[in-house]
């Protein structure tokens, strides 16, 4: 097939490859340089600067954003440290307040306890005094009653009319022995 193609072309008046037709070289070179130079000017003066500008802007923007992010991260770290410091201070303060309150309460409690103890002791002393008074009073009354009973008993049971002095003496002796007991 290739051979027939070649012979067919060879039969043509120009002959051979169109690429070897020297008469077309001049115009091809002229138009090649013309169009290439036009494209070179367009590319270097218009097209590429635009792309360069966009790429640079994007690079700057990304670098700027990264910087901003880094600054913000540092700020966040600082804020966190400050927060933790204030938290620690607050905790220490709270603990101090709690300890103080505890001490105050214990103090108050101890005071109340001692007051109560004193009051109770006083009341107990009063009560004891009252009891003693009542007992003494009862014992005093007991003497007179015992004398009457003794006279009545002596009179009715023994038929003896005992003198007051004897009765008094006997009752005193009995009471003294009871008191002593």
């Amino acid at each position: 097939m290739a051979t027939t193609a070649t012979t067919e072309v060879a039969n043509k008046e120009a002959g051979g490859l169109p690429q070897l037709d020297f008469t077309t070289f001049e115009e091809q070179i002229v138009w090649l340089f013309l169009s290439f130079i036009v494209l070179l000017v367009i590319v270097s003066k218009v097209a590429l600067p635009r792309v360069t500008k966009v790429l640079e802007e994007r690079e700057e923007r990304i670098a700027g954003d990264l910087d901003k992010a880094e600054t913000q991260r540092r700020d966040a770290d600082e804020t966190k440290a400050a927060y933790e410091a204030s938290l620690a201070t607050a905790r220490a303060e709270a603990q101090a307040v709690m300890a103080e309150a505890k001490a105050q309460i214990q103090k108050d409690m101890a005071k109340a306890q001692s007051e109560l103890d004193a009051k109770l002791n006083a009341e107990a002393a009063n009560a004891e005094a009252a009891i003693r008074a009542a007992k003494d009073k009862a014992l005093e009354g007991l003497g007179d009653m015992a004398k009457d009973i003794t006279r009545d008993l002596a009179e009715k049971l023994a038929g003896v009319d005992a003198s007051d002095a004897d009765i008094n003496k006997a009752v005193e002796n009995a009471l003294n022995s009871a008191k002593g007991a």
Partner: peptide, 16 residues
């Protein structure tokens, strides 16, 4: 200089 506009020149202009 032969600067004839040919099918080759046309293609170059289209490419540009």
């Amino acid at each position: 200089v032969d600067a004839s506009f040919t099918n080759s020149s046309l293609m170059m202009v289209i490419v540009v």
